[in-house]
Structures are given as structure tokens and as C-alpha cells.
Nucleic acid binder design. Structure first.
Lengths: 298, 298
DNA sequence: GATCAGCCATACATTTATGTATGGCTAAAG
DNA sequence: CTTTAGCCATACATAAATGTATGGCTGATC
């Protein structure tokens, strides 16, 4: 096998893939355009294949380059994880902790918790990754995850927070105009706010949904849970949201609580290696207690 | 955040972790000792923490360095995967394909298949990883896996080969001396060859094991399936092995076929991105057809 | 069609990283 | 006790990578 290739080259390679041109990649990486150009040339020579088709508007990746991209991304993620891990290694609660959560929790619940945490530890930095797709804690895409299911991977420290209940809600003035439904059948006559594409959670919860609440009846649809929440708050109709969230807003009224009630098991998880990391530990504890308070306010 | 750290530094870091000294790491990496020393110094400066305690006998990693190691290893694995992927990208069946399989299959079955493959494609190189632990195909720890269970991850091309049967066997001269058991109860009077620690496969198959074949009765134990096979072949007693394997050896006789019969579903799997890679494709096909022949010789 | 902005490629200067050579140190072997 | 082999650290020389400056090219805009 030919000599191993310098890892720095992969960095430039990924930069060009992401930015689309040597010049842009150079700017992003903090080097100059000829340097990136030489790196790509060196890679192509090593591999013996064409990675990019040069053009005046930039470089277009070949199919080969595309298939290598995932690996380069993985390198970048790992490098970032290593750097974060190193920053969290010293004594004292300082460094960067990356927290992942669902969009709703991240926007509605975490800010207050993380603000308190930051007040307690001003040297702590936080990165928030909002996604309904579970991040890979084992490979440190995130340090701590707030998830709605029991983690099934080993090597994780997991704390069960409790169950967040999801129920149907609407603003009282909407219900005043349309009447508050007493039976699921009456839902059909209402402006239902729902999902567009089925998410994992919905699929799992589908069997617990009442008959009147399904995709065909939705008048307002959005894949974004945040958008659905905003529509409920705006009085657009009846939709599903977390009960403790709705109870913060006096104008929101729960609809058909006995027919529509989805409890979501809530967990805070972290890689076990991070137990000895002061900043991760602090963030973990703050999230656990903060979320418990969130549940208790129900 | 401080400036990003050159990925090359991580390489030196991992080298020192693996080799235990600057000098040894330098040799392994093909650079000189001062270079590695500077890299480590640069890393320690960037991180603001001590990674190694210098001593005359070498460098001893601190706890911090140890906790960063997994990430560095991950970088190395990914870099290797990228390089392999690149090598397999060109036209023609050349490059390195990494195949993983169980120890028994790897030692007893694959050599013939891979030899034929290499004869057909002299420019193809093969790496064999023998392990009962499933390798991570998604992250390209291996390109192709021969596994005894249906793959549950998406993004994988999987071909079902059939079922390899596992049965009890012994050499005929052993049976001549001790008599061939007709009922499971008679097993207790025999020299049983079995596992020491329970493997995943055993655990899953446990409910299908006959009453007379369990851990307490084993006279000869080994975790290595290869060692068990060798003992069976040496005429040491009765043990379990793959039926097509035993039928190659005329001296081996199957024992209690109706009571002890564990079919193992056999699959060849590969990441779907590799379908367009000529060398991986060739290896995949060769493995699939070769294993099918192996099953058919039963 | 002329101007401008953005891009890549090349030639040259400079900085940076690396290699070479050496000395000091320790632990084990003679 | 001496020798040897292995290691790290430093000073200096060298090679390699990077930056600077420039020219040519294309496509959009006026």
C-alpha cells in the first residue's frame, strides 16, 4: 500500500466538498486558496482518481468524491469530539458541552435550565443541537441527550426523569367560538393541527391515538412541532402538545384529556466516560433536576 | 474557541499512546522523534493540560490522555476506511477489501473461496478480520461481513446464503471405544467438548440445546471454536461443529442428529455504497457463491 | 460590450515544519 | 564499576508547506 495520507488533506477535501470551491474552502479553513488546491491535487494523485471537475465557478465533486464524503465528515465529527473532550478534561466547570434534545424541549424547556446553569458556571459553554433524530452519543456527536425513550445502548449513563404527557390543546377563545368537543367524533368538525410526515414518535404512538385524530382530518399540518405549537398558541385550532407546556399558558385549555393522552418516557443520557468530566457532570445534573421541575409543574 | 487543531497532531498522539514513547511512535509513523515530541507539546499547549508524564523509559499517558484515546482511534479507523474506499473507487477489480467473519468460517471456509477470488483478480488484496463480535459495517470497520444473523441495520446490502447446521460430532475411533450414544442421556458418560464462557450465539441457541449437553457436563472447554474443532478432530470426545465442516473429514461421525441440530442463518452483508465498487462487488459475489457451495456439500 | 466579481492556475518569496546531530539521563547487562 | 541501549531535550541545517502576487478565465450586471 502506498504511504498513508496526511489527515490534514482530508480536512481540505471536506472543506471543498462543503464550500464548493477552493477559494471558499480556503476561507473557511483559514488558509489560502493555493494551499487547498495543492491538497486536493495531492489527494487525487495519491488515490489515482479524479475527485473534482475543475470549472471556473468552482469544483464539482465526482461520484467518487461523494462516496468518500461520509468518511471525511466522520473524521471532522471525531476531531471535534476529541477537542471537546480535551476541553472538558481539566479541573473546574469550564469547557463546551453539547446537548441534544427535541426541538420543542430545546426551545421551550431548556433555555431556562441552561440559563441557570450558565449563571452558576460562567465559564461553561453550551452547544444546543435540536433534532428529533437521535444523535450518536457513543461517537460523541453530542455529550448529553434528552430523549423520549429508554436508551438501549450500553456504556451510557441514563437517568429517567419521568413521563411527559402529550395532550390535545386549544386556546380558550377558539373553543369559545367552536365549542369544546366532548367526544372524539366531534373533532372532525374542528380545525385540527397535526403532522405532515409521520415521525418515529408518531408511528410508535399511533395505536394510542383516538379515532378522530388522524392525518386525513388535519386542516393545518406542519412537520415542525414548534410550528404546530405556535399555531395552537395563535388560536388556529386544536393540536397536540406537551401538557406542562400548555399549562404555562393560561389561555390554553386541554381538550378530551381522557381520550387523548400520550405519556412520553423522558431520559437524560450521557456517555459513561464523561462522568468524571466536571462540566458534563454539572450539565447532566442541571438538566435532570430542571426537567424534573418541568414535569412537576404540570 | 481556540483555533482548530491540526489533525496530524492526533496521529502523533495516537502513535505515542500505542507505542509508549516518542521514539517508538516516530518510527511507527515514519517521522523523527523531535517531530513527534513537538506535536505532543503542541497538543498539550492547545489543550492546556498534561497528556503524558515524561520519563526516561518513555511517556506515560495521563488519565486525560486515556480518555481521549478512543477518539483518536476512531480518527485512525475512519482515515483507514476513507483510504480503502478511495482505493476501491477506480475501475477494475483492484484495491483492498476487508472481510470479517467468525473464526471458524474464516479459518475453515474462507481460505478456499478467497484463494479462488485472488486467482481471478490478482490485483485484489484482502484483509481478513476474524471475530465473533460484529464489526461495524456502517463505519467501515470492514467492507463485507459474513454473519450468522439477519442484519438489522438499513443501508446494507444483504444476501441470505441459507442455513448452516451445527451438530454434535466425534471421531469414529472415539465412538468405537466409547460407543455411539443413542439418547441424550448417554451423553453424560462421554467426554463432552464445549464452551467455557457463553457466547451470544450460544445464549440464543440455549433453548434448543438437548438436556444432556450443558456446561456442567463439559470435560473439555474452550472459548475458541477453533480449539473445540481441533479437539473433536483429535478424537478427544464429542463436541459441536458445523455439519458441512465435519462432512469433509471422513473420520468424523455425527452424533444424535435428531436431538442436536442448530440451524444458523447465514448472511453476507455489505454497505450499500459499495455496490458500485468493483472489488467489493467481486468479493461479495465470490463469498456468496462460495458459501452457497459450502452449504451444498453437506 | 465593458466592467466587475469570483474562480483557478502558476511563479516566486517566506515561513513553517521537519530532519540531523548531539548531549544528558536512566536502567539493565557485562 | 563500566558499558550499552534506550529514551528525551536542544541547537542547528534543511526541506517542505504555506503565503503573496499575478494572470487568465467565465458569467453576471450595467
Amino acid at each position: 500500500m502506498a504511504k498513508d495520507i496526511g489527515w490534514e488533506l482530508y480536512r481540505s477535501f471536506l472543506g471543498v466538498l462543503r464550500e464548493g470551491s477552493l477559494s471558499a474552502a480556503a476561507r473557511a479553513l483559514g488558509v489560502t486558496q493555493p494551499t487547498v488546491g495543492r491538497h486536493i491535487a495531492a489527494l487525487e494523485k495519491s488515490f489515482g482518481l479524479t475527485l473534482f471537475v475543475r470549472s471556473q465557478g468552482g469544483l464539482q465533486p465526482t461520484q467518487a468524491a461523494g462516496s468518500l464524503r461520509v468518511h471525511a465528515e466522520e473524521m471532522a465529527k471525531t476531531a471535534a469530539a476529541l477537542q471537546r473532550a480535551a476541553a472538558n478534561q481539566g479541573t473546574g466547570v469550564r469547557g463546551v458541552v453539547r446537548v441534544t434534545a427535541s426541538e420543542v424541549v430545546g426551545v421551550e424547556v431548556l433555555p431556562a435550565i441552561l440559563t441557570r446553569l450558565r449563571n452558576d458556571f460562567p465559564e461553561l459553554k453550551l452547544e444546543l443541537v435540536l433534532s428529533n433524530r437521535p444523535q450518536d452519543l457513543l461517537h460523541r456527536e453530542a455529550d448529553i441527550a434528552v430523549r423520549m425513550f429508554r436508551p438501549h445502548q450500553a456504556q451510557l449513563v441514563a437517568r429517567r426523569i419521568g413521563e411527559i404527557e402529550v395532550g390535545l390543546h386549544a386556546r380558550e377563545d377558539y373553543l369559545g367560538r367552536h365549542g369544546c368537543p366532548d367526544h372524539p367524533q366531534e373533532l372532525a368538525a374542528n380545525a385540527l393541527i397535526g403532522f405532515d410526515q409521520q415521525t418515529d414518535f408518531i408511528r410508535r404512538a399511533a395505536r394510542n391515538l383516538p379515532a378522530g385524530f388522524d392525518r386525513e382530518r388535519f386542516v393545518l399540518s406542519a412537520d415542525s412541532d414548534l410550528a404546530q405549537l405556535a399555531m395552537i398558541r395563535a388560536g388556529a385550532g386544536i393540536g397536540a402538545c406537551q401538557v406542562p407546556l400548555a399549562s404555562r399558558d393560561r389561555r390554553l385549555v386541554r381538550v378530551l384529556p381522557e381520550h387523548f393522552c400520550l405519556p412520553m418516557e423522558t431520559w437524560v443520557t450521557m456517555h459513561e466516560d464523561l462522568r468524571n468530566s466536571a462540566p458534563c457532570r454539572a450539565a447532566f445534573d442541571a438538566l435532570a433536576t430542571g426537567l424534573q421541575q418541568y414535569l412537576a409543574q404540570d
